[in-house]
Write a protein that binds this DNA or RNA. Structure first.
Lengths: 106, 106
DNA sequence: GATATTGGTAAGTGTGTGCTAACATATGCC
DNA sequence: GGCATATGTTAGCACACACTTACCAATATC
């Protein structure tokens, strides 16, 4: 259910840029905003989306809001993609075997 | 670059439903459309998005267009998420070690 | 307490997008 | 050829959403 949020969150290019920047090092909103092509409020809104997706955490240092990557959302995302991957692989194996059987009927 | 498409494609609930249905078994457009809350053209449009994201393939059986899961998009998606995961883990290890050093200064 | 710094929030706007209905296209069968 | 079946495509519409500007809230510093 939260995978939905994570996928949608990372689907936006700006949000992915913010997230990728946070993967390198945690940063405040202002630090994130400079170097970005969008305004500070826009960054703030994106951070909110990333936060509700469980991809990012906030801690306060005085008046600054420092954001960092959060594992929780990543866990679900990884679990979902791994399941997709495993299922797809086994499905293809089944298909390959079926085709082999078709080629050598007996 | 195509990861962007895959993430955005799977971010939509309807498209995820279609994709999850295709993971169980390949199906034609009409088969996918019944049981879905949206019209057949809508399904067709979603399939186009999934196709350009490399998540789905089409083969024709007479007049029917049968869709099935495609590995290509899944490979990129998995690679991206794995990288996120690995980087996040090592970052947290570094942070933990740094905190340990801070606790025992010498 | 006044002022400055840092961020979140609200209102408004333009573009993207998911949907439907109507039409166009392609294959199969008579 | 003509009709039926199955699907893609187009036009139009409503809504979501990313963005900016203006404003509000909280903490730090004097």
């Amino acid at each position: 259910m939260s995978v939905e949020r994570a996928l949608q969150a990372l689907g936006d290019p700006t949000r992915r840029a913010i997230f990728d920047r946070l993967r390198k090092a945690s940063a405040s909103v202002g630090e994130l905003a400079e170097g970005m092509p969008v305004s500070r409020p826009a960054v703030s809104q994106h951070l909110k989306v990333l936060r509700t997706a469980g991809l990012v955490r906030e801690r306060r240092e005085g008046v600054r809001h420092v954001y960092q990557v959060e594992l929780r959302g990543l866990v679900e995302l990884r679990r979902y993609v791994d399941r997709l991957w495993g299922d797809a692989l086994s499905a293809f194996e089944r298909a390959a075997r079926a085709q082999d059987r078709a080629r050598e009927p007996k």
